[in-house]
Amino acid sequence: MTETVRKNRRLRPALVGICLAAAVTGISACADSTPSDSGKSKSPGQSSHQNSGAPAAAKPSTPAAAKPSTPAAAASLRMIANGDHSLAFHVTPGHLPALVLDAGGGEDSSYWKTMAPELAKKTGSMVVTYDRAGMGKSDEVPGAWKVENAVSDLKAGLTKLGITHDVILVSHSQAGEVATYFAKENPNWLAGAVLVDGSLPEFYTDEETAKIEAANKGQVEALKDQPSTQQTRQLLATADGYGPMHRAYHQVSWPQSVPATAIVSEKTPFETPEDAQLWRNAQQEFVKGAPNRDLVTAAKSSHDIAGDRPDVIVTAVGQMLKTAG
């Protein structure tokens, strides 16, 4: 495994495998090996749109939500305690529904540094970004990373902020797992979700999970030989118990009552055609699970959709706001 840290603190991936590969190789937000700056606008192209798996071409459009005439206010930092640790939440004021942005594995709230103010300005909604435990300004929590703990942290933060209804989750990669468990536990809190190349239960068959575990075993051992830093500790925590956690995740279902848009990158997080197709198939299977789900393909995008095609995310959020009324 390469131990070269790029200037943006990302380690170049050596093997495929969503979330565990992101964890043990340090792929920031499970991005590919040559990610662009998050939220950096590019010339808009076309994205494929699917409703319940039926493909149709579509161009990015302006979100349907109202646009405020004045610039969005600056985000304020709120440190919120959950048990014996504190979490950093960044809140841009606005109206409901609130947009809660959750970055992927290896990333903190700074992943959304360009998109958060853009969404606040274009929609007028309250925008919340936060650092999961051990990331950014949030406290580290010893032991294996558990999605249930991440859900508890998010719920505690939103409760303290007084946002317990009309929430739209915008969740990238590994945060798709947090979103799925959060939605299952708190469906009445949510007006919808936009899952940005999200890690979805349908992908984690026993065969695929075993394949990821085997492919990354050597990288986990290599990480253990590296100096103990906040980054390496969090990567190892995410890898700990990966197999059992994802076999259980495969049995979890997104609640039928919560609308969702799944955005899948054209390149996917994988290098091999076989794994890439399995990723696409899982996204399609998820969308076919209920009539209130849509599938959008971010054309010409790597897994780092916020960097490569921010317009696709902004459009999907606008459509979800329209759906939420």
Rank of each mutant, 00 (worst) to 15 (best):
residue 175 A to L: 08
residue 147 V to K: 06
residue 181 Y to D: 05
residue 187 P to K: 12
residue 199 S to D: 11
residue 166 D to T: 00
residue 146 K to R: 07
residue 171 S to I: 06
residue 152 S to C: 05
residue 151 V to N: 14
residue 228 S to D: 09
residue 172 H to R: 04
residue 218 G to F: 01
residue 142 P to D: 08
residue 211 K to F: 12
residue 221 E to Y: 00
residue 202 E to I: 12
residue 234 Q to A: 13
residue 167 V to T: 14
residue 191 A to P: 02
residue 226 Q to G: 00
residue 157 G to R: 03
residue 204 Y to T: 01
residue 229 T to Y: 05
residue 194 V to M: 03
residue 178 V to H: 08
residue 216 N to I: 07
residue 185 E to Q: 14
residue 240 D to V: 07
residue 141 V to G: 01
residue 157 G to C: 08
residue 210 A to T: 11
residue 144 A to K: 12
residue 172 H to M: 06
residue 158 L to H: 02
residue 244 P to T: 09
residue 155 K to R: 15
residue 161 L to R: 04
residue 189 W to S: 03
residue 166 D to I: 00
residue 220 V to D: 01
residue 214 A to G: 08
residue 196 V to H: 10
residue 189 W to V: 08
residue 174 Q to D: 10
residue 207 E to M: 12
residue 214 A to M: 07
residue 190 L to N: 04
residue 172 H to F: 00
residue 219 Q to D: 14
residue 240 D to A: 15
residue 236 L to N: 07
residue 194 V to A: 04
residue 151 V to G: 12
residue 197 D to G: 15
residue 176 G to R: 11
residue 194 V to Q: 04
residue 171 S to V: 05
residue 201 P to I: 04
residue 241 G to R: 14
residue 236 L to E: 11
residue 169 L to A: 08
residue 195 L to V: 02
residue 215 A to S: 13
residue 167 V to L: 10
residue 236 L to G: 09
residue 230 Q to E: 15
residue 195 L to I: 09
residue 159 T to N: 13
residue 175 A to M: 10
residue 243 G to I: 03
residue 247 R to E: 12
residue 142 P to Y: 01
residue 175 A to I: 07
residue 202 E to F: 08
residue 209 T to S: 03
residue 157 G to D: 01
residue 185 E to F: 05
residue 245 M to Q: 15
residue 143 G to L: 11
residue 208 E to P: 00
residue 218 G to L: 02
residue 212 I to G: 00
residue 161 L to F: 00
residue 176 G to Q: 13
residue 209 T to F: 00
residue 143 G to A: 08
residue 238 T to C: 03
residue 175 A to N: 08
residue 176 G to S: 05
residue 141 V to S: 02
residue 226 Q to H: 05
residue 234 Q to P: 03
residue 210 A to R: 14
residue 239 A to N: 03
residue 170 V to K: 03
residue 224 K to A: 09
residue 198 G to P: 06
residue 234 Q to N: 15
residue 216 N to H: 08
residue 185 E to I: 03
residue 148 E to L: 07
residue 236 L to M: 10
residue 236 L to V: 08
residue 172 H to S: 13
residue 178 V to P: 07
residue 239 A to V: 03
residue 219 Q to E: 15
residue 213 E to C: 06
residue 229 T to A: 02
residue 194 V to D: 00
residue 225 D to L: 10
residue 216 N to D: 09
residue 167 V to P: 05
residue 220 V to T: 09
residue 240 D to R: 12
residue 209 T to E: 04
residue 212 I to Q: 02
residue 243 G to P: 00
residue 156 A to W: 11
residue 167 V to W: 07
residue 189 W to T: 04
residue 229 T to Q: 05
residue 244 P to Y: 12
residue 181 Y to R: 14
residue 150 A to L: 10
residue 218 G to D: 06
residue 234 Q to K: 13
residue 148 E to A: 11
residue 239 A to G: 06
residue 186 N to Q: 15
residue 169 L to S: 06
residue 146 K to V: 01
